[in-house]
Write a protein that binds this DNA or RNA. Structure first.
Length: 296
DNA sequence: CACCAGGCCACAG
DNA sequence: CTGTGGCCTGGT
């Protein structure tokens, strides 16, 4: 027999997506840094809520958020098959789709996305994860989850901008600390920034993001894709550079990665893949090690 | 101990 | 305008 209030245990909700979803691929492909899989269940924090999701036989069993949030967050409100079939003339993308079909681009909070991808520069995923957790612990609101474990929301712009430069550096951000420090201050002083960028056409929004310190072409493209749902965005990282050279003969990974080289690869991809180029990028990125290992 | 990881910035030519 | 080093930190 158990003691303790059963009312504290959240009701598990069920949702059955009508279109393809690969939850494992979606939450582990590297677009997000705050989800962990324990047993069969994914646990994460999004917009100040602790959420669990388990996928079983196509059904989603979830706690901590509404169905509307789940659908929006996982981008289940879109014609996924139509996006994928738009790539049907490209054998490489279809290879990737066969491996991780149902991979979704999650609708991230633009602010969290912005800071996260500033941290992500020149780092690997475990390191990025630690930096972000440190920031959350330092300035994020504590959330007591039903399992009794305290997690932390991603700090608001106001909260993050109260930290000193040294406190941010203490979150193991290294040379990225001044970028986060200055960008947080700028955003905190300008609450309408996200609405403004959301309304801008792609290239203009891109330029507007690159005004913030620590945000270059790669980070801007990630934020436009993951934070602003501008799906024509095609972020080019060192992996994508290698892959695009190998599959399409674009660019040359032997030479130094100049801004001109970035533009060449990005323009080609946006033209070649079309308005959902970002989805092509995510599918290629999801199986990046296969290309490194010489498969495909 | 080198070298690199989902780059950006300051500075030289 | 284009190209090259250096950079915090942590893992091979």
């Amino acid at each position: 027999m158990k003691d303790g209030p059963s009312a504290a245990v959240p009701e598990v909700m069920v949702y059955e997506p009508v279109c393809p979803l690969n939850l494992d691929a979606t939450l582990s492909c590297g677009q997000l840094f705050r989800w962990k899989k324990r047993e069969d269940t994914w646990e994460g924090v999004a917009d100040s809520r602790f959420i669990t999701i388990r996928q079983d036989c196509g059904s989603l069993y979830y706690t901590g958020c509404s169905e509307a949030f789940l659908i929006s967050y996982l981008h289940l409100d879109c014609p996924h098959d139509a996006i994928v079939s738009g790539f049907s003339c490209d054998a490489h993308i279809m290879d990737a789709v066969r491996c991780t079909g149902g991979l979704r681009i999650v609708r991230q909070n633009p602010w969290e996305c912005l800071i996260s991808y500033i941290c992500a520069q020149n780092a690997n995923i475990p390191f990025i994860t630690r930096m972000i957790e440190n920031l959350c612990r330092a300035a994020g609101k504590p959330i007591t989850a039903p399992d009794g474990v305290v997690r932390y929301a991603f700090p608001t712009p106001e909260a993050l901008s109260t930290l000193t430069l040294e406190e941010i550096r203490g979150c193991t951000l290294g040379y990225r600390a001044p970028y986060v420090y200055k960008t947080a201050a700028a955003i905190a002083a300008d609450p309408a920034w996200a609405d403004r960028i959301r309304e801008m056409p792609f290239e203009e929004a891109r330029r507007a993001l690159m005004v913030y310190p620590g945000i270059g072409p790669k980070v801007a493209d990630c934020v436009l894709l993951f934070g602003f749902q501008k799906y024509e965005s095609f972020p080019v990282d060192t992996w994508m550079r290698m892959i695009m050279h190998r599959l399409y003969g674009i660019g040359d990974p032997e030479k130094s990665f100049t801004p001109a080289e970035y533009e060449r690869i990005r323009r080609f991809a946006q033209e070649h893949f079309g308005p959902y180029a970002g989805y092509a990028q995510e599918y290629l990125f999801a199986i990046r090690t296969s290309y490194a290992d010489g498969k495909f």
